[in-house]
Design a protein around this nucleic acid. Structure first.
Lengths: 167, 167
DNA sequence: CAGTATCCCATATGATACTG
DNA sequence: CAGTATCATATGGGATACTG
């Protein structure tokens, strides 16, 4: 996405956006999670130009988010497919987070065209914040600590500077 | 971000990206969560042009993600600040998800310059996937259901088409 | 301080044609 | 099928000046 070196070093958000912040990138990942693997299938669903798709797949591959795999079906010539790596799966909270925000705030019905369910029990899946004991965390209970400094004083540590009243 | 009407209607990810997918938008939200409220303070931290900042703040405000609040300190003239709404807080899984991905994959040390801790117990906070009983969900246990169709057959429902081997 | 208005440019993108 | 190459365009963004 082209940000300054300063930003990239000082902020992991900016650094990640430099890889996945381009216009079509997240939508490519969405399609990968839907099982899309091949160039033309991406192309058809995304309706972007092949040049753009090619460039994005390259970036994602070089970043280790996708993996280009050669395969050959019996009697066919060699083909390639793009598979998600573990690094891709670790972006799921981002992708699903975007989806559920849109579901809640942009879809007329308050829910979107796609639902995620656990295979085992059929429970709805969502992105959320948890602590290292896997317990749900309320946004108001979070404080920001800068590694280079002492723990922030309470007044500063307030987070996310909660909206006093609702918009 | 300028996507087709088709995309916006069919995909909440695309719809949300049309609001927050622009270059500086997520970084503005990052700063809001750091407690930044005023135009010039954003400007200083972001080092983008005032025109761009103005445009993004407008978009975010119109989307209900920020709220423009007038206030007047004693003896001073009227000022404005931009506060996060609940809708902004609901984007935290996305923002924190981006951060933790960068921490893991782009920071040399495997952890970034900023850490999030629960105020109560000082536990690390992360973005994750949970079910509606607030239990952690493994990515392999998720299946995608399209609202307009019958539940996907097992072969299709596989998700996220897990990486067989690691990259 | 808190923006708006201009000007200009880099470049991401769309459209299309071409190749192994 | 799976891309690369080319070209025109649109526009997001940088720099800067200006205003209430």
């Amino acid at each position: 996405m082209d940000l300054t070196t300063q930003e990239l070093r000082n902020c992991s958000i900016a650094a990640t956006l430099s890889l996945v912040g381009e216009k079509w990138t997240i939508l490519i990942l969405r399609d990968v999670f839907h099982g899309i693997r091949r160039f033309d299938d991406f192309l058809e669903r995304l309706q972007c130009s092949p040049a753009v798709l090619s460039a994005r797949l390259k970036t994602l591959t070089e970043a280790g988010i996708l993996r280009k795999v050669s395969y050959r079906e019996p009697g066919e010539r060699e083909r390639f497919e793009y598979r998600p790596t573990r690094a891709a799966v670790e972006l799921l909270p981002v992708v699903i987070g975007l989806m559920q925000w849109g579901d809640r705030h942009l879809a007329a019905s308050g829910q979107g065209p796609v639902t995620l369910l656990t295979a085992q029990q059929g429970r709805r899946v969502r992105a959320a914040l948890v602590d290292d004991a896997d317990q749900l965390v309320r946004p108001n209970d979070i404080e920001i600590c800068h590694a280079s400094q002492r723990p922030a004083p309470a007044a500063e540590g307030e987070f996310p500077h909660a909206p006093a009243t609702q918009a």
